[in-house]
Computed example of a mutant assay.
Amino acid sequence: MTGEAASVDAVVPDPSNAEQLRDWNGDAGAFWAAHAERLNEGVAGYHGHFFEAAAIDAKADVIDIGCGSGQTTRDAARRASDGFALGVDLSSRMIDLARRTAERERVPNARFEQADAQNHPFADRSFDIAISRNGTMFFGDPEAAFANIARALRPGGRLVLMTWQPFEENEWIRTFLGVLAAGRELPLPLGAPGPFSLSDPERVRHLLTSAGFTDVRLRGVSEPMYFGPDLDDAYRFVSTQFGGRLDGLDADARARALDALRAGMAEHDTDRGVLYDSAAWITVARRGPA
Rank of each mutant, 00 (worst) to 15 (best):
177 L>E: 09
170 N>V: 05
227 F>P: 14
231 L>T: 00
219 R>M: 08
172 W>F: 14
218 L>W: 00
175 T>R: 09
227 F>D: 15
239 S>G: 11
252 D>W: 06
182 A>G: 01
222 S>L: 09
214 T>Q: 07
187 P>Q: 07
188 L>R: 10
198 L>K: 04
185 E>S: 13
184 R>C: 00
203 R>V: 06
222 S>F: 14
250 D>T: 12
237 F>R: 08
248 G>R: 13
220 G>S: 10
226 Y>P: 02
216 V>I: 10
209 T>P: 04
228 G>I: 07
231 L>A: 01
181 A>K: 10
194 G>T: 09
216 V>G: 03
196 F>W: 08
203 R>A: 09
184 R>S: 01
242 F>L: 06
207 L>C: 03
217 R>I: 11
241 Q>P: 04
207 L>Q: 03
248 G>I: 05
172 W>N: 15
252 D>A: 13
240 T>G: 13
215 D>I: 14
193 P>W: 07
249 L>C: 05
190 L>K: 05
201 P>C: 08
182 A>N: 12
232 D>C: 05
182 A>E: 15
185 E>M: 11
237 F>P: 05
211 A>K: 00
250 D>Q: 11
211 A>W: 03
191 G>I: 10
192 A>R: 11
231 L>M: 00
188 L>E: 06
234 A>N: 05
197 S>M: 05
184 R>E: 03
217 R>S: 07
190 L>H: 12
243 G>S: 11
246 L>I: 08
250 D>E: 13
214 T>G: 00
174 R>E: 10
184 R>P: 00
179 V>M: 04
171 E>C: 01
165 Q>H: 04
234 A>E: 06
253 A>K: 15
201 P>H: 04
205 R>K: 13
218 L>M: 12
195 P>Q: 14
230 D>G: 00
184 R>M: 03
247 D>M: 08
227 F>A: 15
219 R>N: 14
183 G>F: 01
240 T>R: 10
194 G>W: 02
205 R>M: 07
172 W>I: 12
235 Y>Q: 13
228 G>E: 08
215 D>W: 03
238 V>R: 06
237 F>E: 11
187 P>G: 12
187 P>F: 04
253 A>R: 12
233 D>H: 09
179 V>W: 01
238 V>L: 14
237 F>Q: 09
252 D>V: 13
212 G>W: 05
234 A>K: 05
200 D>K: 04
243 G>W: 13
238 V>C: 09
178 G>S: 07
